[in-house]
Design a protein around this nucleic acid. Structure first.
Lengths: 235, 235
DNA sequence: CGCCTCTTTGAGCTCAATCAAGGTGTGTGG
DNA sequence: CCACACACCTTGATTGAGCTCAAAGAGGCG
């Protein structure tokens, strides 16, 4: 883990994230006061479950997973954070406590790490920013609700939904892209859906053989999007 | 559905809800400007999925369920709203749209129905209120995350967790109360967990026979809390 | 080269879903 | 007051999707 001062490029990356879009450069600079840019390597940890919440982060490149470990030893992935996503911002509204989740990089990534003091001075006092945070939070909640709705559907539909969501999310809804830019393993898909790797593999191997998807270097390409869309159309 | 002007009593009920606690009476009155008190009967609908979001609500008595219907015809209960809980407040931050869920009363209940205009004028402009909303939202998200964590555990643990949560929530953490004050059916438990009624009944019948719980008039009493706590202790 | 992560396949088993049938209690209208 | 509908609860038999356990192959990295 490697920390720098912020470059102009990094700020530019944030311009089309919903949290920062249409904000003046001056404003963005106050929101990022005393922040540091952190480079993370593949599988490197940003926050560990139990760490003190005296800073939070914004993803500026790559992707990270938010993990909760269960007593039984298996992990559940709560969220895939991609460019523009805040991590732990919700925890800044309450007094310093401990991170309830661990945050681990998937492939190399960059995040801006923002101290609690900056949040308290420049975020928590700004109505517009609080509303934006609210929206973020709301859409993340909608995701979790969707997960809950999918509880009862067969595994192949769950996987289809996840892949489609990731495809859209990782490419900012640029619909002609077919490769999921987040490097993701079958284990991570399983952890995200709360099922076993073997089950995920059985489904996805079948899809690979039928040219519906193909995997290269942990990037999944979706060859027949129609097939997947059709699977989840009644959900 | 039966609508009144607000009584002082109703406002009093809100004083120990996290959203309103420690606010001056004057402040509360501005937050509730142009609101109306609505009495709902058992199974009566407050909002229908698809209704326009030009008002939201706060529960002042009783309980309501937030439901999403799936294409397959079964319902999923997203949340049990009890006294002090806001319903749909998060939707006020975005332009008027449609309710994504239906809200139905469980037993008789009262809610304060607050128009969008009041939110925009007196809620969205107030840093303190926005922060409180954020916290609310955060704790609701934590619930959904917990649900996700429970995905893989056996059914009896899921039910145990739900009953314990409801017991705590419905009695404001008053720990010597043993009856869940929300009237709830096995079907609703099943809908909340995303499982079938029959499975819920099989587990709960067993518990009833073993004097762990007992049900009277849709109120569930927990006779052996230890047993349930023990079931979920490693989750 | 050996370690580690990730993927794969097979065999057997289990928990909860499904389907089917019946029971109980409450409200409602003739 | 009866009967009829409706909401809710119950039990049994059967089935199957996904889990568990086991063993092994492929690729990358120090």
């Amino acid at each position: 883990m490697n920390s720098h001062l912020i470059s102009a490029q990094e700020i530019k990356n944030l311009n089309n994230s919903p949290l920062f879009e249409k904000l003046s450069e001056v404003k963005i600079n106050t929101l990022l006061m005393n922040s540091r840019l952190i480079n993370l390597k593949h599988r490197e940890t940003l926050f560990n479950c139990g760490d003190r919440t005296d800073s939070f982060a914004i993803v500026t490149a790559g992707a990270l997973k938010l993990i909760k470990s269960t007593a039984r030893g298996d992990d559940i992935i709560m969220y895939f954070a991609t460019v523009g996503d805040p991590i732990g911002a919700l925890l800044m509204n309450k007094p310093t406590t401990e991170y309830p989740i661990s945050v681990v990089s998937m492939g190399p990534s960059n995040v801006l790490c923002i101290p609690r003091s900056t949040f308290e001075k420049n975020w928590a006092t700004d109505v517009d920013v609080l509303q934006r945070l609210n929206s973020q939070l709301y859409s993340r909640m909608t995701n979790l609700q969707d997960d809950k709705l999918m509880n009862k559907v067969p595994l192949n539909q769950k996987i289809a939904k996840l892949l489609i969501n990731l495809l859209l999310k990782s490419n900012n809804n640029n619909s002609d892209e077919t490769v999921i830019s987040v490097p993701i393993t079958r284990q991570e898909i399983a952890d995200s859906l709360g099922v076993t790797v073997e089950s995920v593999i059985r489904t996805m191997s079948d899809w690979s053989q039928n040219q519906i998807i193909s995997t290269f270097d942990k990037k999944i390409e979706i060859l027949k999007l129609d097939f997947l869309l059709n699977l989840i159309k009644e959900v």
